[in-house]
Design a binder for these strands. Structure first.
Lengths: 152, 152
DNA sequence: TGTGATCTTTACGTTCACGTCAGATTCAAC
DNA sequence: GTTGAATCTGACGTGAACGTAAAGATCACA
């Protein structure tokens, strides 16, 4: 149920130092009740959060600072969930929070879609280049003397 | 026809320092005939090469060192083109060069495809989350008292 | 032939994202 | 309650990818 920092690091493929660093810069929340000196303990949810952080860092190629603001979408949604469990918040406030979360989501989506499109373009180009290379090899194997006839 | 380093930097959206740095680490070829002290001059092809470098760096998220080895595919192909223009190279050597280039291309393609797939997955997840958020907002606007009935 | 803008090399500085070390502390297990 | 492994805090170190400053040289143009 509760893992220590070394186990978490092994689980997600990183180091304790990195986890502490992420906490230091506010990318991971620090447990509010932990007295200085005591060992950190992590729930499964926190491990998942870390996995998500590392995944986004890798896929989006943004700085940890940008990533922090991007991930505020999740904080907003967490707050929404928390507020939905209480009855004393008005609908106006709820709409506000949801709208905010939606905005963050849209920013993430835009970033992801743009990169996905660029990558698709690159993949296409690479495939074309590859095709040409393969064709040339086939020509070579069919008849070495025909090589000069196909210009790139 | 020939641009200076400042113009090139403006064209591709970087700085002269970065261009010199890329040359320094061997990511961009240095003109062999330039005496020390004379200004660097760039052809359109070299500008394109720089654009490609920056594009791959951004999209693949690899270090400049990895990028250098990845880009050796282009060098290999350049060498093939050069050798194809001469007649004194045997078919064996040509096949060798083409095969090498093909290997590099395959490595690039694998990298690109993997990242593209990951990004697609992420995009899908974000879309789902977004849908849920929108639905909840619609519910709120239809009837604020129904809010608690839809759990995330 | 000047002259100002741009470029040259050299070298040290900076930011990010951690690595590494030290010395003390905590924890799990015996 | 002791011991050994893991963790804690704090601090300094490091590599990658450039930024920046200095002092002089080169280039485009009048």
């Amino acid at each position: 149920m509760s893992l220590r920092i070394g186990d978490v690091a092994r689980l997600v493929g990183t180091t304790p130092r990195t986890i502490r660093y992420y906490e230091e810069i506010g990318l991971l929340a620090e447990a509010p009740a932990r007295p200085s000196g005591q060992h950190r303990l992590y729930s499964d949810a926190e491990v998942e959060r870390l996995r998500e952080v590392m995944r986004l860092k890798d896929l989006l190629g943004v700085s940890l600072e940008e990533l922090k603001t991007l991930l505020s979408a999740e904080e907003a949604r967490a707050e929404v969930r928390a507020q939905l469990r209480r009855d004393d918040v008005d609908a106006e406030r709820r709409r506000e929070l949801l709208g905010e979360a939606l905005g963050h989501l849209d920013r993430q989506l835009e970033l992801v879609r743009h990169r996905a499109a660029e990558l698709a373009k690159l993949e296409h180009e690479l495939c074309e280049t590859r095709k040409r290379a393969k064709r040339k090899i086939r020509e070579l194997e069919a008849d070495p003397r025909l090589v000069a006839s196909s210009r790139e």
